[in-house]
Design a protein around this nucleic acid. Structure first.
Lengths: 342, 342
DNA sequence: TTGAAAGCGGTACCAA
DNA sequence: TTGGTACCGCTTTCAA
């Protein structure tokens, strides 16, 4: 069906009796050609449906104009970052290759190799994994970190301050009057999760009760499990800060299953503000992270890194507590209402 | 920082005093070399950190080993398809480029051009838009349709039968005893949405009430709006089939806001079985679509199309009603419970 | 078993 | 303003 090979620059040139240089110029440096020649060439290009072979062009130009986005997993959360990257890429004429590592260092390496092999010009690393792949590499490809800085490196980065945001989330619950504020963290293998616990701990200071901090793995299921554990404590929390929205939703489910009303009996705050947060019932109070914006800026930053080679910036974007339906001021609870006593 | 240019095949050859052909062979056709030479070359490759330039290789070989996945929008739904594609790609040695069109024909064209320009070998079209870009193209790139066949073409495809699945979904509600079953459809600009309405209509047959069919646009918000409309009818539905999960969730919200209990007062079934469906409260009854599997098979099919050039298959995968918490047998409802009377 | 060399399809320098 | 041509880095005949 598709047996004819694509038109090449040689055929276009032959068709018009001009040199291939002229055809090339008509496309890349039209100002160098006479009005007339340019028009003739362009018309022929159109007629023959000529498309320059990017492989050849890129080989000659030593650049591929593609950016590689590497995410740890294909979740809606990272998808938002990707969306931002893509938008910026379209604006700047880049194509975007996307890959996920499943937190496998071997696969991380494979993506770096893609750059070494010139399939991409640079990498946007949206990863929360340790920079294992980065460490033992002789030659680093151009790379920008998104979402958070890679531990131990000081890459150009576009990110948020996870610790500060976690402090704010915890403080938000404290300000609501809650005394026993628990935390469901992400896996300690994820630096992002670590930074968020640190914020929780900072906010609580000396009043920190380690029994109220349970480790999850960022899935809803783990949030459910963690919540069950917390509710089984003899002094269960009245508020919970979960390190991401999925776990927060799991926690809400577990609370409901245990017969608690959210937010009347227990407050829960998530993190990220994924789409599901606003959609959930009740809508989830959470920390908004400008994911798409991060991706957008990261791509722009990568472009600068690729061009100037001098840029070395660390862009920190603000987060924002977004109150919705899963948090409420603390009110003492019990089997009966307080005024039953009197 | 990264000023040294990458090692080329020439440098490796020079280092060893062999020809570049030998180096190339060590990597691509090792069996042609003597044991000893091969070992020497491989060691030098390792030592120098040589990575063949894929641009050059691809130019020579006239293939890029990249597949382009084109989706209409960056939603978690399409992400699942992508996940499957990526898995198959990894297995078969392809890289995956992803792009979304926002249903803009111009951008669809742009992606086809990427193939014409040899940045990718073929396309996996996960689109529900009309094949506008396909129609007015002289030379079609190798393309596989995923999720559904493109109207008017008969591309190799991996898909589900949307109409049949919609019949089953509607029938499921009917079997539950519901008489007034409404439908919230996707936008009629999407063939997928059209196929799903058709199923709804088929299942209802002559008893179809056009007042019970409202058009949405696949967003939760539109589901909410549609539901409000339906509840305002003087004979409101007792069951609703929404053409995707997001709209179904919007419908559930609207029902709750209107003071109805789901599923006691009204049953709602979605379509797709996105992740959010199982997470929602109550968990959404829906039609399971094997999205990742579709992507996986589509990539495998594309590879065959690219190689054999003879394949022309139409693979239809099964869907499955997945009962969860938003549907229940029909029971007449009123302002008071039935036994309040006695 | 190895080497020499002809491309793959462009870009851009140097001349004319 | 245009043409001739030397690359870009690799693969693969064809010969030795």
């Amino acid at each position: 069906m598709n047996d004819r090979r694509p038109t090449t620059i040689i055929e276009v040139a032959a068709e018009l009796g001009v040199s291939i240089a002229t055809v090339s110029r008509a496309l890349r440096r039209p100002e160098l050609l006479s009005e007339e020649t340019r028009a003739r060439v362009l018309k022929a290009v159109e007629r023959l449906g000529y498309q320059p072979n990017l492989l050849a062009r890129d080989l000659r130009l030593r650049e591929s104009k593609v950016a590689l986005v590497v995410v740890p997993s294909l979740s809606p959360f990272f998808l938002e970052v990707f969306r931002g990257v893509e938008k910026a890429a379209r604006k700047t004429g880049y194509s975007v290759l996307m890959g996920h590592t499943d937190r496998d260092p071997e696969r991380e390496h494979a993506f770096f190799d893609q750059v070494a092999a010139r399939r991409a010009d640079g990498i946007i690393l949206v990863t929360s994994s340790h920079a294992s792949a980065l460490a033992d590499r002789k030659r680093l490809p151009p790379v920008v970190a998104a979402l958070e800085q890679i531990d131990g490196c000081s890459l150009p980065a576009v990110r948020v301050d996870h610790t500060r945001a976690a402090v704010a989330a915890t403080q938000y619950l404290l300000d609501l009057g809650h005394k026993r504020v628990a935390h469901i963290s992400g896996p300690m293998s994820s630096p992002m999760a670590v930074h968020r616990v640190e914020g929780y701990q900072q906010a609580l200071g000396p009043s920190l009760d380690t029994a109220l901090c349970v480790e999850g793995d960022f899935t809803a299921r783990s949030g459910e499990l963690a919540m069950n554990l917390l509710l089984a404590r003899h002094a269960p929390p009245t508020a919970v800060f979960a390190a991401n929205d999925e776990m927060a939703i799991g926690a809400v489910r577990a609370a409901k299953m245990a017969g608690l009303r959210v937010p009347e009996d227990i407050s829960i705050i998530g993190f990220d503000d994924q789409r599901i947060a606003a959609l959930y019932d009740p809508p989830l109070t959470t920390v908004h992270v400008p994911t798409a914006e991060i991706g957008y800026r990261a791509m722009l930053l990568l472009e600068r890194v690729l061009n100037d080679s001098a840029t070395d910036r660390d862009i920190v974007l603000p987060t924002k507590i977004t109150p919705r339906g899963t948090t409420a001021p603390y009110r003492p609870r019990g089997p009966a209402a307080p005024d039953d006593e009197g």
